[in-house]
Design a protein around this nucleic acid. Structure first.
Length: 505
DNA sequence: AGGTATTTTGA
DNA sequence: CAAAATACC
């Protein structure tokens, strides 16, 4: 079948050569600027712009919050294309079946896309590249998601890197990231052939947003998905919170971080753009941050790069311990505790605040991600993969590299991970990073009436303080699910086995 | 990118 | 004597 159609195509090309045309397959690069694959397609000739919702294959299904974001991001992208006289074609199904058919019927002679790095996506993309090439169509893939390709950074002996600091030093030594490309000024749209009209689906038919119940109200209030929303967030960050970022980034009670993560996740903005925008804001004097704030911010972009490096060389990063000593770790199965953690009912205010922020907005401050993850893993001894799953379902920035690497880092099973004895105390952390309890009061309003001195440990309030604050401990707000000292000792005992001297180094 | 007990420091 | 540095887990 394939050989036959290939022969037909070659004959056809010789008989009456068709004008050059292209197809850009959008995936996690939902932007027009700094999108080299898109630019290459547009420069080649009239372009068919295609997105395929791929839910049945071996790729990890998107979580609910990510589906909501994707829906809004696709709508934004469609509008941006429409403003340039082009159309975004939406389809649903297996790209391995859909793409060759669209390419063949539309007669495009160039297909472009931006690379992905999770194993099932890479397998799918390689297969498609081979199939389309064999059928006579040129395929070009580009880097839109990273400063450096994962394989561009290596140790002196050519091995993958396992520690962040040398990784980031080596990554910076690769050279200054390329300047971002502007969005194509003009683009000619290649319409979907009439014969394929039945394959296209409407945005509504993708059914990516929740209806009954509609739990996305908090997401809508918090975010503006899409390329323009991403650019606005970056500008606001550079003009404000970047100054003082080094200290402010740890404070969940302030708006002191960029909150670009979901925009990055869906490629509404790329790290090259962030890098150069940050540099020029400093050089032009539009931002007044010190060099340590800038370095700190760029190194956060570096952690994302490092996570992708780890994922590329460890395709099972989300399911297998990077450090195999953790394979025998005595995790507890405790569904009631897991559920109380998920719902923000552990009795530890900063933990509960974080999980409720996550549930309501689809996002959680990084400092609080570490605190809540540490609590689940260490105080509750619940497998990091159960926490990773929850974050995957509820985060709008759920990312195959960052989410897995972050959880393994907290568990201590990851690369350059948190040491086994680092067990975050939610009270200490709360006092240190949410000093006045503003973050807790926002997300755990039922204890908002407590004094600052008790806001992070309501179980220490005496009957009078509880009555004044209108709290019935154990009824309107839970007592602690586990004792901190007992949980800490239990975790240290369990973790001791991962560091016995006879284990392989 | 910690916590905690202990020691040291300096107002 | 409280805060800061240190040692150890």
């Amino acid at each position: 079948m394939r050989a036959l159609s290939q022969a037909a195509r070659v004959t056809e090309h010789h008989a009456n050569p068709m004008p050059a045309s292209s197809l850009h397959w959008f995936r996690d690069d939902l932007r027009l600027a700094d999108n080299p694959a898109l630019s290459a397609a547009v420069a080649h000739g009239p372009t068919l712009f295609l997105y395929i919702l791929d839910e049945g294959g071996s790729r990890r299904p998107l979580g609910g919050a990510s589906r909501w974001w994707l829906s809004r991001s696709l709508a934004a992208l469609a509008s941006a294309l429409e403003a340039k006289g082009s159309e975004l074609v939406l389809m649903r199904g297996d790209p391995a079946a859909i793409l060759p058919r669209v390419v063949e019927t539309s007669g495009v002679d160039l297909v472009t896309w931006s690379r992905r790095y999770d194993a099932p996506s890479m397998a799918l993309d390689s297969r498609l590249k081979a199939d389309l090439t064999a059928a006579g169509t040129r395929v070009e893939s580009f880097n839109a998601a990273l400063l450096n390709e994962p394989w561009q950074v290596a140790t002196k002996t050519g091995d993958p890197m396992k520690v962040f600091t040398p990784y980031w030093r080596a990554a910076r030594a690769v050279g200054e990231p390329a300047a971002p490309m502007p969005a194509p000024r003009r683009m000619a749209s290649l319409p979907l052939p009439a014969a394929l009209a039945a394959m296209a689906v409407s945005h509504a038919e993708l059914a990516l947003e929740p209806t009954r119940p509609d739990w996305a109200g908090g997401l809508r209030e918090t975010w503006t998905p899409g390329e323009a929303g991403a650019a606005a967030r970056l500008s606001e960050f550079l003009a404000g919170p970047l100054d003082g970022y080094g200290e402010g980034r740890d404070r969940p009670d302030r708006v002191a971080t960029s909150r670009l993560s979901p925009h990055l996740r869906f490629g509404e903005i790329g790290p090259r753009q962030i890098w150069h925008a940050t540099r020029s804001a400093i050089e032009s004097g539009d931002a007044s941050a010190g060099s340590s704030d800038v370095e700190k911010f760029l190194s956060e972009v570096g952690w994302r790069e490092f996570s992708y490096h780890l994922l590329f060389y460890n395709p099972d990063l989300a399911t297998e311990n990077f450090n195999r000593r953790f394979d025998a770790f005595p995790w507890r199965r405790d569904e009631p505790a897991l559920e109380r953690w998920q719902r923000g009912l552990t009795g530890y205010p900063i933990v509960d605040a974080g999980l409720r922020e996550l549930w309501t907005t689809g996002w959680m401050h990084n400092r609080v991600r570490m605190i809540t993850a540490s609590f689940l893993i260490k105080h509750l001894l619940i497998d990091w993969r159960q926490g990773e799953d929850w974050f995957w379902d509820t985060l709008v920035d759920a990312d195959p590299a960052n989410n897995a690497a972050g959880w393994q880092w907290v568990a201590g099973s990851g690369a350059d991970a948190s040491p086994y004895y680092r067990i975050f105390n939610p009270v200490t952390q709360g006092l240190k990073f949410d000093t006045a309890g503003r973050y807790v009061r926002r997300w755990v309003p039922e204890i908002a009436g407590l004094d600052d001195s008790l806001i992070h440990e309501p179980w220490k309030a005496d009957a009078g303080a509880l009555r004044r604050a209108g709290i019935a401990l154990g009824e309107t707000y839970p007592r602690p699910i586990v004792d901190l000292d007992l949980g800490r000792k239990r975790a240290l005992d369990a973790l001791a086995m991962t560091r016995s001297e006879d284990a392989p180094g």
